[in-house]
Design a protein around this nucleic acid. Structure first.
Lengths: 137, 137
DNA sequence: CGATATAGGATGCCATTGCAACTAATATTC
DNA sequence: GAATATTAGTTGCAATGGCATCCTATATCG
C-alpha cells in the first residue's frame, strides 16, 4: 500500500540540499530563502504574518529572520503603533540579491520538473495544495 | 511563478508532526518509522541497502537504526561472511509493533488524501515519483 | 604477498525545525 | 483603573538529517 509520504520526504530532503548548494554563495540557507522571497513579494510585513502565510512555526520564523538580518538582507524595526510587532523589510542588499535567488530557485524547479508538462505540473500543484490543506487543519 | 517547493516543504513538516504524535506511544520517532517498515517488508537487510532504497544518507540511517535497536525493535549482528556488514532484522517486539505503526500511518494517509479520488492519488504518486527521480540524480 | 584502494559503518559537527516556557506589550474584564 | 488574558516575539531544548572525517574489513593491483 504505497503512500505519498515517502516521496514527499525524499523530495523535500533532496530539494533542501540542492537549494542550499545554490544559495551558499549568498550565505542564505535552505531555511531562509522562503522568508526572503515572501518579504520581497509582499513588502513590509511581520513575523506573525509570515508564519501564518508559510505555515511555519513562529519560532522557526524568528530564527530565520534573525539570520537574514545578521547577513544584512532584512531590516527590523518596532512598529510605532504596537511595540509588540517588528516591521520587516528588505535592505538594499536584500533587494539586490532577490533576482539571483529567484534564478537559483528557477534552476532547481526546472531540474525537478523535467519531463513534466505544464498541465501535469498544474495538476500536481493543485493536488499538493489539497494535501497541504488536509494535513494542516 | 508558483512552485511545488513551498507545498512539498509544508506538507513534509506537517506530516512529520502528525506522524510523531501518532507514534509517540511506541517511542518511535518520525525519523525511524520508515526504517522499521522497510525492514519489516524486506526482511533481513543492511544499512547500506536501506540507505540506497530510501534515498537517505548512510549516517542518518545509522542513527535511526541505533535508536530502533535501543528501543528493542531491531536486532543487529555482523555478517559472518563480511564483517563490514551488519545484518538487520526485526525483533519479536519489532514484528509485534508493525501493524500498529501501519495503522497509524494509514490514519495519517487518509487524513492527507481526504477529498482526493483514487485516480487523482495515483496520478499524484506518479508525478511525485518523477520529481523525485529528477531531484535525486 | 604487500601496498593501496574501496566499502560499510560510526562519530562529531552544524543547519533546520517544532514545542514548552518565557518576556514584554496591548486588550479585555471586572 | 487594576487584574487578568491575549498576543508578538525570544530562548532553550530536543529530534531529524546531511557532510566531513575516521575506523575497520575486504578488494585490487603492483
Amino acid at each position: 500500500m504505497e503512500s505519498h509520504g515517502k516521496y514527499i520526504s525524499a523530495i523535500y530532503r533532496h530539494m533542501q540540499v540542492l537549494i542550499a548548494a545554490e544559495l551558499a554563495p549568498y550565505r542564505i540557507g535552505s531555511g531562509q530563502y522562503i522568508f526572503l522571497m515572501a518579504i520581497a513579494s509582499q513588502g513590509r510585513t511581520t513575523q506573525k504574518e509570515l508564519s501564518e502565510e508559510l505555515l511555519i512555526d513562529k519560532t522557526t520564523t524568528a530564527k530565520a529572520i534573525a539570520k537574514l538580518e545578521a547577513e544584512g538582507y532584512v531590516r527590523r524595526e518596532p512598529d510605532p503603533e504596537d511595540n509588540r510587532y517588528q516591521l520587516l523589510q528588505l535592505t538594499e542588499a536584500g533587494y539586490k540579491v532577490v533576482p539571483d535567488v529567484q534564478a537559483a530557485l528557477n534552476r532547481v524547479k526546472r531540474k525537478a520538473a523535467k519531463g513534466i508538462s505544464d498541465e501535469e505540473y498544474e495538476l500536481l500543484l493543485g493536488l499538493l495544495k489539497k494535501v497541504l490543506r488536509n494535513v494542516s487543519e
